[in-house]
Computed example of a mutant assay.
Amino acid sequence: MRTLRRRMGLLVVPVLGLGLVGCCGSGERGSDASAAAAGFERAISTGDTAAVCAALAPESLSEVEESGKAECADAIPESRLPVGGSVRTVDVYGRQARVVLASDTLFLSQFTDGWKVVAAGCRLRAGHPYQCAVKGG
């Protein structure tokens, strides 16, 4: 099975690995991932940087702080995350999820305290992996 990988500063998510036809986001896990993504998007749209940072996975939070050389709440605006809009689709496989929004794609992982955003501001590039504004190491 393919998992999220980091290669040359890009979040690598092969398109074929996400064609999870048999493992879609229906059910409680998909609903929980969708709700986490929607909460993240609300925080972005309202400028609630503390909530945005709280929604990030630990490695993604560390990456934001290291890249911005500041606490997450001060550094996250520099990431210029788009307001993604409403959830269009959710693909869940194991403890990983991809949530496609109207104008963004988020990748989440399930932690003991719920779903956290591993990568955000992701754009699919034809024939290439997603490129994300925020990602974990």
Results as ranks from 00 to 15, higher is better:
Ser34Asp: 09
Asp91Cys: 02
Gly136Cys: 05
Val87Tyr: 04
Gly39Pro: 12
Val83Cys: 01
Phe111Met: 15
Val52Asp: 04
Arg29Leu: 14
Cys132Tyr: 06
Cys24Leu: 10
Val21Gly: 15
Val12Trp: 12
Leu81Glu: 13
Gln131Ile: 09
Cys23Lys: 09
Val87Lys: 01
Ala102Thr: 15
Ala36Gln: 09
Ala35Cys: 00
Ala57Gly: 10
Ala55Leu: 10
Val83Ser: 04
Ala75Gly: 05
Leu18Ala: 14
Leu11Ile: 12
Glu59Asn: 13
Gln96Pro: 07
Gly17Phe: 13
Leu11Ala: 01
Ser60Gly: 02
Cys53Leu: 07
His128Val: 06
Met8Asp: 08
Glu41Arg: 04
Gly137Ser: 14
Glu63Gln: 12
Thr49Ser: 13
Val117Asn: 01
Val90Trp: 00
Thr49Glu: 12
Ser45Asp: 08
Leu10Ser: 11
Gly114Thr: 11
Asp91Gly: 01
Ala36Pro: 14
Cys53Arg: 03
Val52Lys: 03
Thr89Gln: 12
Leu108Tyr: 04
Ala126Glu: 07
Gly68Asn: 00
Val64Pro: 15
Lys135Met: 07
Cys23Ala: 11
Met8Gln: 08
Ser62His: 04
Leu124Asn: 13
Pro14Ser: 09
Cys132Gln: 02
Gly22Cys: 09
Ala126Leu: 15
Phe40Pro: 09
Arg29Gln: 02
Gly85Asp: 00
Leu16Arg: 12
Arg95Asp: 09
Ser60Asp: 03
Val118Phe: 06
Cys53Gly: 08
Pro77His: 00
Arg2Cys: 12
Ala133Cys: 05
Leu16Lys: 09
Ala102Asp: 15
Cys53Asp: 03
Ser86Leu: 06
Ser60Phe: 08
Ser45Asn: 00
Ala73Trp: 07
Glu65Tyr: 10
Leu61Thr: 04
Ala50Cys: 02
Leu108Lys: 00
Gly39Asn: 13
Arg125Lys: 13
Glu66Arg: 15
Ala97Val: 05
Ser103Asp: 11
Ala57Ser: 14
Ala54Asp: 12
Arg42Trp: 02
Ala36Asp: 03
Met8Phe: 08
Val15Pro: 11
Asp48His: 05
Gly30Trp: 01
Arg5Asp: 15
Arg2Ile: 15
Gly47Ser: 07
Gly137Asp: 15
Glu59Trp: 02
Trp115Tyr: 12
Val90Pro: 06
Ser45His: 02
Gly121Cys: 00
Gly22Glu: 14
Cys53Ala: 01
Thr49Asn: 06
Ala54Pro: 10
Arg6Ser: 01
Glu28Gly: 07
Phe111Asp: 09
Asp32Leu: 13
Arg5Phe: 09
Ser31Pro: 02
Arg88Ile: 10
Ala36Trp: 05
Ala97Asn: 07
Ile76Thr: 04
Phe107Tyr: 11
Cys24Met: 10
Gly22Thr: 13
Gly85His: 01
Met1Lys: 09
Leu106His: 01
Pro58Gly: 12
Gly47Leu: 07
Glu71Tyr: 00
Val118Trp: 08
Ala97Thr: 04
Leu108Ala: 09
Ser62Arg: 10
Val118Thr: 06
Glu59Ala: 15
Tyr130Thr: 14
